[in-house]
């Protein structure tokens, strides 16, 4: 038996919206420690990693570790049936091999309870070992600013160059019709820091050129949290982390560009 209760369905709705553009089907792992998933896009260029810790749930029970395969598009449609402020219960019975994942949504005044279930699927997916890494530069910035920059530069080109130095981070793109850039200056964190402030921890300047198509998908996680951190080292995958308050994170990894 697994049973996880989230105080607000909206968090889970936002998580699925953040993942479903990049990944259509995924295995979800339930363990004593919480719920997690790791999945690559079909081209193996990008990877997402979700962690929801057991102590972030209102209640959490997992008698035996289970891996359940879901179609994220179907899950997204199902979650549209939940009110944002509904309490959400996810449960599955593994007595005879779980073949469905069950959801119940209870309104804040407890006067409405709805129940839905999602058919599970067998998914044969590769998983990868992600080593712990020290990055040369970590940019911590507003997630809404990140979304805006990705949107703005997508109107100019197909790739963005991210150049981090001690002074700031510059996002730039160029295309057939022209070019554009946005510079965010490093701000020392001080009391009363604006939510839009950008800070950069850096050992040496780092530059990456990345396809905007993937970054647009990652930006779908912005509604989950105010901040995003971009972790960069030359010639290794870039990691974008969106922390989900009190409960976990979504991390996206994107392979660096290579000369074709």
């Amino acid at each position: 038996m697994i049973e996880a209760v989230l105080a607000q369905a909206s968090i889970f709705k936002k998580i699925v919206e953040a993942l479903k553009e990049l990944i259509s089907e995924t295995n979800i792992d339930f363990s004593e420690a919480g719920i997690s998933l790791q999945a690559m896009d079909s081209s193996h260029i990008a990877l997402c990693n979700l962690l929801l810790r057991d102590d972030g749930f209102k209640s959490y029970r997992c008698d035996r570790a289970l891996t359940l395969g879901v179609n994220l598009n179907s899950l997204s449609k199902l979650l549209k049936c939940a009110g944002n402020d509904d309490e959400m219960r996810i449960f599955a019975n593994d007595d005879s091999g779980a073949d469905q994942l069950n959801f119940s949504f209870e309104s804040a005044n407890s006067e409405r309870v709805s129940e839905f279930s999602l058919k599970l699927m067998d998914i044969d997916a590769d998983s990868v070992d992600i080593p712990d890494m020290d990055y040369q530069a970590i940019i911590d910035m507003s997630s809404s600013e990140f979304s805006r920059i990705i949107r703005d530069l997508s109107s100019v080109g197909e790739a963005v160059s991210i150049d981090a130095t001690k002074q700031g981070v510059k996002f730039s793109s160029a295309g057939d019709a022209g070019k554009g850039s946005i510079l965010l200056k490093h701000q020392k964190s001080v009391d009363g820091d604006s939510a839009l402030a950008t800070s950069i921890e850096i050992n040496e300047p780092v530059s990456h050129s990345l396809a905007l198509k993937f970054l647009s998908s990652f930006a779908k996680a912005a509604p989950l949290t105010d901040r995003v951190s971009i972790h960069m080292t030359e010639d290794v995958p870039v990691m974008f982390e969106f922390k989900i308050s009190e409960i976990g994170h979504i991390r996206f990894y994107l392979a660096p560009q290579i000369d074709d």
């Binding site: 990008a46 590769d126 392979a255 290579i258 074709d260």
Partner: peptide
């Protein structure tokens, strides 16, 4: 023209 690489070149598949 540069192209996006694949993660398989960086992370070990298990």
């Amino acid at each position: 023209k540069p192209a996006q690489g694949r993660l398989d070149a960086f992370f070990k598949t298990s």
